[in-house]
Amino acid sequence: MNLERLLVTLIFVIIIPFLGIFLGLLYKGFDRKITAMMQSRIGPPWRQPFRDIRKLFMKETIIPEGAVPWVFNGAPLIALAASLIALLYLPLGPFEPVMEGFGDLILILYLLAIPAVAMAMGGLASGSPYATVGSQRELVLMMSYELPLAIAAVTIAWRFETFSLGTIASTPVWNLVGPVGALGLVFIAVALFTVLPGELSRVPFDQAEAETELAGGLFVEYSGRNLGVFYLAEAVKLVVVGTLMIALFFPHNLSSWVSFGGPEIYGFVILELMADIAFFLLKLLVIIFIAVSVVRVALARFQIDKASYFYWVPMTLLGLLGTVLVVMDGAII
């Protein structure tokens, strides 16, 4: 690796976390605004999450008596760090993953699991019965949605014969399969779309927080800075899962269809780059709108056993069916 590459990587490693947090909070704000508008409310302004964060960081951080302080304080940091690291391994729009070559899809799957485990750890360490129940639910839910998620990831990787996200994102997977495989991919995409609200703990899969049942569940004892960090982790996770979805299924770039021309810097055409970034942000917004906002307002919270059943039986079967179709398609070709 030459020095220039190292320098660029370092700069990106510093910039991307801030960008991730900013985008996450921005999309969280849009999600809240759109949700409110769909419920015929005016809703908070889109910059409300930024204000929330500012306020949370100003507030006192209380550590309950029954808590294990180092786990209780460490859990939010682990959750945030894991989500931010995951962002480094994901292709953001027209850019290759910053850490391309150091990790792949499997690593992403593990990094996605860490925030959930950290939240459960923090909940268990806070010593409140509500948080304990919430943590148990979070773990059960995590075990449930991992199955369809893993199936989707493995199928895509099998088609590309690599786990490298850079390679996967360079060509839309739809171009590699025939009509039967495309149908299979639709099934897998649907299964993965249902994983998104579970991954982000939003209704109908917000059993771990379940405001009316557990009064905030695993976050019940968290306050001030710790809660703020969890809030940031959730916001970043929103971008991470959205980007993963884009990388696996919709890595299309505007520049591959339309040519803009114009000046170039480091081999990037400026206009095309800007168009691609805008297109990426739009794709992210659409995915969040469909998988988070609409689902969140159109469904009631499931009981935990029914949520598990939903992932383990219908969604896993759907994913497996998709896999079989994709494999069949490969055999035909």
Binding site: I34, M37, M38, Q39, S40, R41, I42, P45, V294, V295, V297, A298, L299
Partner: peptide, 26 residues
């Protein structure tokens, strides 16, 4: 997913909101 609910929601996204506005926005 219940389709009629989603339809209503999209309609509400575009129509006037039921909330009474504050005298000034912020």
């Amino acid at each position: 997913m219940p389709t009629s609910t989603v339809f209503t929601l999209i309609k509400q996204l575009l129509t006037r909101k039921a909330t009474n506005p504050f005298p000034v926005k912020y």
